[in-house]
Amino acid sequence: MTSSSLYPSLASRLGSVWYRHFRTYTKDIVSNGFPPFMEPLIFLAGMGLGMARYIPNLVEMSYLQFLATGLLMTSSMFTAAFECTFGTFIRLEFDKTYDGMLAAPLTVSDVVLGEALWAGTKGAFFSLAVLIIISAFGIVGFLPALLTPIIGFLNGFLFAAIGLLVTSFVKNINHFNFFFTGLLSPMFMFCGTIFPIANLPAPLRVVAEFLPLTHPVRLGRVAALARGWKPSLLLDLAYVLAVAAVVMYFAVRRLSKRMVK
């Protein structure tokens, strides 16, 4: 900010919102940092040591590789979705955090967009955590896969936007169950994370193509294996960016009516 301006720049405002969430999250870094590393470890131990040996490999990769690279995005999806549903709702309704923030030189768009950027960052961090675990097990290489946290960020931002839009409708915190059980759990199963979409019946394959998780998973898997790049991935990228932008637009509009009466 220059001394002549009337208020901080957009970048400074978004950065300050991001920083607020960063500080409150990293205050408990040990307990907050435990799940992103532990969960993939448990999942891979169970699936990899136990179940994967009963499952035949795919053409391009082992089943364990398929599963592990799917986990990169489900992990970032869940953390961003939690942050921008339960987290946002608690800040909105119980902690009244936004009343304090909106008294400072921030607009509702700054607060909401800054929050999504933070959730995207968490998504990147969670993807990175999974990458560290799966590369430690030798399932993928670490250095060639360093694009994955970036995909994790985009994925986190996408699900932050969706979470924020859902939150704008929710009046009772228990209603988030519909979102998590009704949308996120099916996506975890059917978006090419634990088995290829090609194995679905034709009509469901079409449905899967419309679901948001499918596209980041496809991008993340290629990024993690650092092979299999093809032009159609640009469509996946375009889907992520376009849906995130449109959903974010409506989330800001609706939350604005809720925060500023």
Binding site: S16, R20, T97
Partner: peptide
């Protein structure tokens, strides 16, 4: 009093100072 209960007194103020750039 919508303070950030996760962080201490000084950090509450420091976080807020960022909002003003």
């Amino acid at each position: 009093d919508n303070l950030d209960s996760e962080v201490n007194v000084g950090a509450n103020l420091f976080i807020y100072s960022k909002f003003y750039g």
